[in-house]
Design a protein around this nucleic acid. Structure first.
Length: 808
RNA sequence: GCCCCGAUAGCCCAACCGGCAGAGGCAGUGGUCUCAAACACCAUCCAGUGUGGGUUCGAAUCCCACUCGGGGCACCA
């Protein structure tokens, strides 16, 4: 069947979305683009089957649907594979893309093949560079020197987001810290908008994803407070969410790995001890550092700060439980009301002063962080937490000692990577002019050929080895200068690709601004929950930057988001090492494309994982042939007057169509399939033991089945459509419309309960009045019997479906 | 440790606003067809909704507590 229909579909191109005279309303359905690391696998098969249902549904509903695909083709896996096999990453990547593309076509995805893109092509990454330069101009892209996450295995830096539990997200190596000068994107400048604009997504994105994004951004409100330091001209500012506990601050802690700590320790008797401690801190892996039950360590720096509210001298410690890159890298410690400070105070024998009254039954063996009345706090005494915070901020601002402040967990996005297979950063370093952007008309800064370069990870970018490429004249002064040798994080590529699809071959800009007005934002995005934070957050950030640049008119790129689950085998993720890998190609060979797709869609709700051991592709295949046989048993001609058909079957058809429609729109695709199965069963019955295959209602049902199946099983549906006497393609046949009149039942079965138990049933017209129904119910034999002369307390009537009689 | 989600038949899953627990499928059983088998078709078995309370005329559905499973966050001051 594949050989038969693929060329026909190529001819018709039912899913081409770029026709200029197309007057259908538009929809943009987007599947997350794949990484070309090999052939498609089961996970792809699930994701694309689900995206396809949505895209094909809207086409059937008469929309001009943009459903594009491309490849996220830059990145470490390609490079690592290329190194291992000693081949060029470009060639390797292109081979995989060709293979995946062929598989997608066989899998009959409704992609618009006129809009394909791949991020590793210079025509694409040129615009990464262009966007980077626009951000550079606005100060949104900048270079800074700091301790960064370093993956010793991949020999490259990682964004905060790519460190999971202290390990490299990709290779699981334990991440270390390294001091480097790196490029960052100032995403923190958009933190508030990233948070607040989530309102638009509420209800349309999974709650889970919104929650994860909120947590990731981690906005907290509090105050910055200035502490005088003895023997230092400048005060040191700390950030706290609990300014109401300022009277309870009994010591002061600076992050051991901060510059401030080194400065404060310098020249004190504690310097030697501090330096030894710092060495020790650096030696601890991120993993150990992150473990929360680790005992508190630190060094007294032999210096003191002054608590601004009461003038008390408090000792300054350097410790590693304070983070250098959050807030100001220094804190006021209030052991009575912060568990970490409590633990530290206990370890170092520091005083603990209660300034918020805990409840009477508080055991007092740990910090009390809850609400309560302020005590021993001067002007705050008697105020509850919220009021005390407000009062303290007011007081600090009056005295010029501090101010209300907001902080974020979110850090700026580190985008430099010391690897080859990525977008070169379009900056030239000139000894006299500094960081000079590559002029737009010299873009793209193309990657030098991999041949001759040492791609093996060694801590510096392989591009540094391409001397002809690195050494250039400074665009500003013409003097000898060098190119930046780092490449961009591949998440840059995927942060705006959805815009590039609008005109993937555009040469005078990253995307077609007018087309964006027509198509964007994406109506439905489909992809795995693995990208819940990274990719989605970055895409949202880029969209807001583009909005500020006036290039787009919306602030959120993806209106609705569907996260499909994973395909697992026997309860766990498939992997070669586990030996539970199911190969997509094997499944396709055994059951066929339609059966595999149907299995994916029918397995359960799309967001649930599919355990391949629990589902039945052979069952799916059986159903498809059952549906297909229907089309052969229809003996009436196309266009026959269906209103003359058997009413019972017509009702069944209307009901199935109606319910399947609702199910598809609410993404309960498994239910939509079940309704289609139901209709097939009803039609079968009508043919074998009802009015027979010649009845027009049977044709109506079979045609509805063909169209409904076209979302999931395109080959079978097209074959059915053809056997039913129609020209291709069933994809454009139009979604069946349920006749409203047929949806109203002639009579309804009314349940009559006595004390909540069903005692009788009545066949009543749907329009029956409450009073009428009450009377009928009270007279029903089952009711009379159940009551046995008992009195009646209440009768609850829910016409026309239910009556509940409560006996006295 | 904190937060979120889930638990319905042997299995995967349905069940609208609280109203007959079953739409669909897998597996099973019995039958029709067949020389026989497969296929196909027909029929049929199977749970009272994780546990314990509560609200209600009525709870799978709402509330509380717990158990188990999955996920997220985790020295962010």
């Amino acid at each position: 069947m594949q050989e038969k229909w693929l060329p026909v579909w190529d001819e018709i191109a039912p899913f081409r979305s770029g026709r200029p005279d197309d007057e259908r309303p538009t929809k943009y359905v987007l599947d997350m683009f794949p990484y070309p690391s090999g052939d498609l696998h089961m996970g792809h098969a699930e994701a694309y089957a689900l995206g396809d249902v949505i895209a094909r549904y809207w086409v059937q509903r008469g929309f001009n649907v943009l459903h594009p695909i491309g490849w996220d083709s830059f990145g470490l896996p390609a490079e690592n594979a290329a190194i291992k096999r000693g081949v060029d990453p470009a060639g390797w990547t292109d081979d995989n893309i060709a293979q995946q593309k062929a598989s997608m076509r066989r899998y009959a995805c409704s992609f618009d093949w006129d809009r394909v893109l791949q991020t590793s092509s210079p025509e694409y990454y040129r615009w990464n560079q262009w966007l980077f330069l626009r951000m550079f101009e606005q100060g949104l892209a900048y270079r800074k020197d700091s301790a960064v996450n370093w993956c010793p295995n991949d020999q490259t830096v990682l964004a905060n987001e790519q460190v999971v539990q202290g390990r490299c997200e990709r290779c699981d190596a334990v991440v270390t810290k390294k001091k480097l000068t790196q490029w960052y994107l100032r995403i923190t400048q958009y933190a508030d908008r990233l948070l607040d604009d989530m309102q638009q997504l509420e209800g349309n994105w999974p709650d889970k994803v919104l929650l994860m994004q909120r947590n990731w951004i981690g906005r907290s409100t509090g105050a910055e407070v200035r502490f005088e330091i003895e023997g230092r001209d400048e005060p040191v500012t700390v950030y706290t969410t609990r300014p109401d506990t300022l009277f309870g601050a009994t010591f002061f802690v600076v992050a051991a790995d901060s510059d401030l700590a080194a400065e404060l320790a310098a020249g004190t008797p504690a310097q030697g001890e501090f330096e030894a401690y710092l060495e020790q801190v650096k030696a601890i892996s991120e993993i150990d550092r992150l473990s929360t039950d680790r005992p508190k360590t630190g060094v007294f720096l032999q210096r003191h700060a002054v608590n601004p509210v009461n003038g008390e001298r408090i000792p300054i410690y350097a410790a590693d439980y304070v983070l250098a890159d959050y807030g100001t890298g220094a804190i006021m410690a209030v052991p009575a009301h912060d568990q970490r400070d409590w633990d530290f105070a206990k370890a170092f024998g520091l005083p603990i002063v209660t300034v918020v009254q805990p409840p009477a039954d508080w055991p007092g063996d740990e910090a009390y962080a809850g609400d309560g009345v302020a005590v021993s706090s001067g002007f705050l005494d008697g105020l509850r937490k919220a009021d005390a915070i407000a009062r303290m901020v007011e007081w600090l601002e009056e005295k010029g000692l501090g101010t209300g402040a907001v902080n974020y967990r979110l850090r700026d996005w580190l985008i430099s990577r010391q690897r080859y297979w990525g977008t070169p950063i379009p900056i030239i370093h000139c000894p006299s002019c500094g960081e000079v952007p590559v002029p737009d008309d010299q873009l793209p800064v193309a990657l030098p050929p991999a041949a001759g370069l040492d791609l093996k990870p060694k801590g510096t970018s392989p591009l540094g080895g391409a001397e002809d490429w690195v050494n250039v004249a400074c665009p500003t002064c013409g003097g000898a200068a060098t190119r930046d040798t780092d490449t961009m994080d591949t998440f840059v590529d995927s942060s705006w690709y959805f815009l590039r699809y609008l005109d993937p071959s555009k040469t005078d800009g990253p995307f077609d601004v007018d087309a964006a007005k027509r198509w964007m934002p994406v109506d439905q995005y489909v992809g795995g929950v693995t990208h819940a934070i990274l990719h989605l957050l970055y895409s949202r950030f880029f969209t807001k930057v583009l909005f500020d640049m006036g290039m787009v008119e919306f602030t959120e790129p993806f209106t609705r988001l569907l996260n499909q689950g994973m395909v697992v085998m026997n309860g766990s993720a498939m992997s070669k090492s586990r030996g539970n890998l199911v190969r997509l190609s094997d499944e396709l060979a055994e059951h066929g494309v339609d059966a595999v797709r149907l299995t994916m869609v029918f397995a359960g709700p799309p967001e649930d994982d599919i355990d391949w051991a629990d589902v039945s592709p052979s069952g799916a295949k059986k159903f498809l042939s059952r549906a297909w046989r229907l089309s052969g048993d229809v003996t009436s001609e196309p266009g026959v007057d269906v209103t003359a058909g058997d009413t019972a079957l017509r009702r069944a058809t209307a009901k199935a169509v109606d319910e399947a429609t609702k199910a598809v729109e609410s993404h309960r695709f498994n239910v939509a399939v079940a309704k289609t199965m139901e209709l097939v069963n009803a039609a079968r019955k009508a043919i074998d033991s009802g009015p027979g295959g010649g009845d027009p209602a049977v044709r109506e049902a079979a045609e509805a089945v063909a169209v409904m199946l076209s979302l999931v099983a395109p080959y079978t549906a097209e074959e059915m459509w053809s056997r039913l006497g129609h020209d291709p393609s069933v994809f454009l046949a139009g979604w069946p419309v349920a006749d409203e009149a047929l949806l109203v039942d002639e009579s309804v079965t009314c349940i009559v309960q006595v004390a909540g138990k069903v005692r009788d049933r009545l066949e009543v017209p749907p329009s029956i009045s409450e009073d009428e129904l009450r009377e009928l119910a009270l007279a029903a034999p089952g009711v009379v019997k159940a009551l046995e002369g008992r009195g009646i307390r209440t009768v609850i009537v829910r016409a026309p479906k239910l009556v509940n009689i409560v006996p006295a």
